[in-house]
């Protein structure tokens, strides 16, 4: 068996489901395809031996965030008549934005080619190694992110609270 066969199967599924997210008529179907897409990406993490990342990806993205997406979408009664009209200007802006994103992605992956040679180590993605990296080498950014998240949380609570007269 070709060792990269699982990768190609997963990659095909990811691209297919990602396309279906955009192409589906019903928003709920889009969300479900997106969840499926997350699973295939999780599969890629597993192939790279990053089990912890896989589990967190599934729990946080597929398990929590997409539930909230689905939650809000279920309330919305979307149909043809209610669809907002898109002007050509909007369409043009969207194309430019998407093109920029594509450029950035291509740029990032070009630089990553040298990293691929390093990824043969099997234990790089385990919990212990990840923890050591996060709390050793990357301690400052990690703590900064936690402060940022705390600030965001406090902000959300403040916004959510009823204003006191």
């Amino acid at each position: 068996m070709n060792p990269s066969l699982p990768f190609f199967v997963l990659a095909t599924l990811s691209v297919f489901s990602a396309l279906m997210v955009v192409l589906s008529r019903k928003p709920v179907h889009s969300v479900l395809y997106l969840i499926f897409c997350f699973f295939t990406i999780g599969g890629h993490y597993l192939l790279l031996n990053a089990q912890f990342l896989f589990a967190v990806h599934i729990i946080v993205y597929a398990g929590a965030i997409m539930v909230l997406f689905l939650f809000t979408l279920m309330f919305i009664n979307m149909n043809k008549e209610l669809e907002p009209h898109k002007t050509n200007l909007l369409k043009g802006a969207a194309t430019v934005a998407a093109g920029c994103l594509l450029l950035v992605m291509v740029g990032v992956t070009k630089g990553a080619e040298s990293l691929a040679a390093n990824s043969n180590r099997t234990d790089v993605g385990t919990v212990a190694n990840l923890g050591k990296a996060l709390y050793g080498q990357y301690l400052l950014p990690f703590e900064l992110i936690s402060i940022l998240l705390l600030a965001a949380m406090v902000g959300a609570v403040l916004l959510g609270k009823k204003s006191v007269e």
Binding site: A55, I58, I59, A62, G63, V67
Partner: peptide
């Protein structure tokens, strides 16, 4: 080695 996280992942899909 992520046993308990696996459980959480599956449970969160159950919903």
């Amino acid at each position: 080695n992520i046993g308990i996280l696996y459980v959480f992942g599956v449970v969160s899909i159950g919903v």
